[in-house]
Amino acid sequence: RLTFRELADLADESRCFSVNEVEALYELYKKISCSIIDDGLIHKEELQLALFRTPAGKNLFLDRVFDLFDEKKNSVIEFEEFIHSISVFHPNAPLEDKIDFSFRLYDLRQTGFIEREEVKQMVVATLLESEVQLSDDLVEAILDKTFEDADTDKDNRISKEEWKAFVLKHPSVIKKMTLPTLKDTTAAFPSFVFNTQVED
């Protein structure tokens, strides 16, 4: 159980959440972190279970999301790390943070660029996941079109500046970086009301 000071510090740091909302997110965190291994920390299998409803299988995006949430790189997501990352998904979080997070997510090999090979890998993974079959020619055509648009200096990789310009031109590509639910977290997790340390 977190102290009021810890909750208040996390709320303060997040710049998006109130203390009550951090408490509500703690309820969600506890639920996920006890789903497989009851140690109060989120392991990759638990994040996978929460996202896919199954702990089995391998998913490229899950690996990247987990890696970004796991700031200390100790193979678990602590509550503080959970709040740090999830706050980027708040509707009021700065657009700059969302652009930065999505860039790091797609920069699979963490080279500071989103390379064409990485984009292909993610397209293929998404098609596999949704059981859609496209010919290799069509995938290459999609990549050609995307890079024509995003890779303005034509070096076959997308820099952070190019990514920013691309996102501003096509805001829908980071639509998933905003979770409207986070604006009303306390309503989504009413159970926290019974545990709250904050009086009205």
Binding site: L28, I32, A50, L51, F52, N59, L60, F61, L62, D63, R64, V65, I86, F89, L105, Y106, V119, M122, V123, A125, T126, L127, E129, S130, A141, I142, L143, K145, T146, D149, A150, F166, H170, S172, V173, I174, K175, K176, L179, T181, A188
Partner: peptide, 25 residues
């Protein structure tokens, strides 16, 4: 649709990137 030729619009549909699922009851 023009979006269908946008690799990132396609990628953003992946379930692994759909954190909204965390909030599903």
């Amino acid at each position: 649709k023009p979006e269908s030729m946008n690799a990132f619009a396609l990628i953003s549909r992946s379930q692994g990137f759909n954190l909204g699922n965390l909030f599903e009851k």
